[in-house]
Write a protein that binds this DNA or RNA. Structure first.
Lengths: 333, 333
DNA sequence: GTTGGCACTCGATGATACCGAGTGCCAACC
DNA sequence: GGTTGGCACTCGGTATCATCGAGTGCCAAC
């Protein structure tokens, strides 16, 4: 464990580096931090912090920058979750006051909001369809052998899936299937679609079955809906153009992002720093995640992805507030 | 007009610059192009091309690079639309053979396909909802005073909009509104939603009216659905990190992209080079657009956005092929 | 344990020279 | 007159070198 003075110095280095993106020297700390000690003492302490793996030097005779371990200590020592600037609080409040529209729209806009608040990339993962009960199901014919199954869930989500038939199906069959599905699925989850009893009419049953399959995704399948906002912010955070390219490439693959957030949460973390998550191209990035609760249950996840030297207190506050308000907004229907 | 030799030299410079991203000198052209002339002659011609605004020099004693006007000539002289590599043809064919699923999914995946084919950013704009007839409408209650109107269109699109009521509305009213809307909207466009006759029951009419409003967007409003694929490709095309940031920032604002494509098409162009379109941050980019036809009518637009020194023949071929196959795919329903 | 002092390191900055790709021009040539 | 080899010239890129200064590590003194 670090004694109080080392901790203060470490915090000062992290804070300084977050602000300036420049290595922090002992003199700056002696001046800024209100430890009444000289720069020489700071130097001695910093040498120890480096030996213990909290700090590193880009080269001899430069200041120190935090290692992942240093950031980790910094983040863990932030017990009060940090506060949002008043203007930002207002921004969040206004946003959720006006956040009407379908689930999709709300989640999309939320990702933008979070990106704007933090100036980093933001991710919002929709609540899984399994959790919500069905309010309405419908089978609609499109072409002679194709149809569309549409379900509206209680949380405002609209799930859809195409159906292909091997022979023509008339409107009456679709209507029959719609009625049958409505009767048996309303109030249940989509997973019940596979267990709808037979009607007795083989053609109708085929439609019902196909619709059930089209709407239901396996819980394991990563068909989660993901909303990514502010990816371009990553370009501002790094100055090596191919770092930017790599990160953006990763962000474009939704399943990687989803996997990343899920993995971080599985480890019970809310902040993952640099190499703590596995992805090599993201080793210069940190992730802040939080589940949001809808009616008391963890529904989806929101997160922020930024450079390791991101402004943790501010970003953590933003994530906390937005996840809380989003959960509340989705709970009230 | 340019004489044949100047044209050949100009084409060679464009081609060389596209391949190497380096200024092209007279010696390279004398060697590569099969004009049986010396580099001195090429130099003389290039001086004229520069005076006429087709070429420019980054600095004295460097080779020439094309101006926008030079690219324009190059593109206009490509009368045969260019061919896709066989492997890519197969890729497109396979893609559309497997492209099932709802409209949304198809369009999203198409943008990815186009980005992969060209290695640039790709945009797909969905057919406007006004054009398609309604196959099914439904009003679903979510909370005590909120509901969701969902319409399935003949082209496979699903339009949705939230409804807010100022007092509680029971399930029966929703059902009545659904039945009424279904009866009067099926086979019509969503615009007809505003002209559905009254039922006689005031509460039901309120729901009907609200649903109509929720589903119908004004043709002028830029509520078009946009799918953007491969934005990270832009990071590979430029080496100035803040150019990348600016371009990505623009791409994130959907309405700018939509406006850009629309403007280009309005001018009757299919290729817009550098400064030809108005956006200053995109002055180092070119855009290739093409409408796609569904049942003979222009429905939506697809496009590719790349650096001005993009591979025009290849990208134009990709856009042409994909727009054609996408139109065909959407026509067959 | 702390501190001022000091030698040392090493990246950043700037000046200088050099190289070479490429040009423009010109006189000669067909 | 168009074409060409020759040649002086330009100028960005690269390498070399010296300098500067921020910052360190260490040590002797407090």
């Amino acid at each position: 464990m670090l004694d109080e003075r080392k901790a203060a110095i470490l915090r000062a280095v992290v804070q300084g580096y977050i602000e300036t993106a420049q290595p922090v020297g002992s003199a700056v700390i002696a001046r800024a931090a209100d430890l009444a000690v000289s720069s020489a003492t700071i130097r001695n302490e910093m040498a120890v912090l480096e030996r213990d793996g909290y700090l590193t030097q880009p080269h001899t005779s430069a200041g120190r920058i935090p290692t992942d371990k240093g950031y980790r200590f910094f983040v863990d020592s932030l017990t009060p979750p940090g506060l949002l600037a008043p203007a930002q609080k207002v921004q969040v409040r206004d946003f959720f006051a006006k956040a009407h529209g379908a689930l999709e729209q709300v989640l999309h806009d939320t990702s933008q909001l979070l990106a704007n608040l933090t100036h980093y990339a933001a991710v919002v993962i929709a609540p899984p369809a399994e959790g919500a009960t069905v309010r309405s199901v419908q089978v609609v014919g499109l072409g002679p052998r194709t149809g569309l199954a549409v379900a509206v869930l209680a949380n405002g989500a609209v799930e859809k899936g195409t159906i292909e038939f091997d022979h023509d199906v008339g409107e009456e069959r679709m209507a029959a299937a719609t009625a049958h599905l409505s009767a048996h699925l309303a109030g249940m989850t989509l997973a019940a679609g596979a267990r709808v009893p037979a009607t007795g009419d083989a053609d109708t049953d085929a439609v019902v079955l196909a619709a059930g399959r089209a709407l239901h995704r396996d819980p394991g399948a990563d068909a989660d809906h993901v909303y990514l906002g502010g990816a371009s912010r990553m370009a501002a955070a790094f100055d090596a153009v191919d770092t930017v390219r790599q990160i953006l490439g990763v962000l474009e693959q939704e399943y990687v992002v989803v996997g990343l957030l899920r993995e971080v949460l599985d480890r019970g973390m809310s902040v993952s720093i640099g190499g703590e998550h596995g992805d090599p191209p993201l080793s210069e990035c940190s992730v802040i995640v939080s589940p949001y609760l809808v009616e008391g249950e963890a529904a989806g996840t929101i997160g922020v992805l930024g450079p390791t030297r991101m402004n943790y207190p501010q970003a953590m506050a933003a994530v906390a507030v937005v996840s809380q308000r989003l959960g509340r907004r989705l709970s009230e229907g």
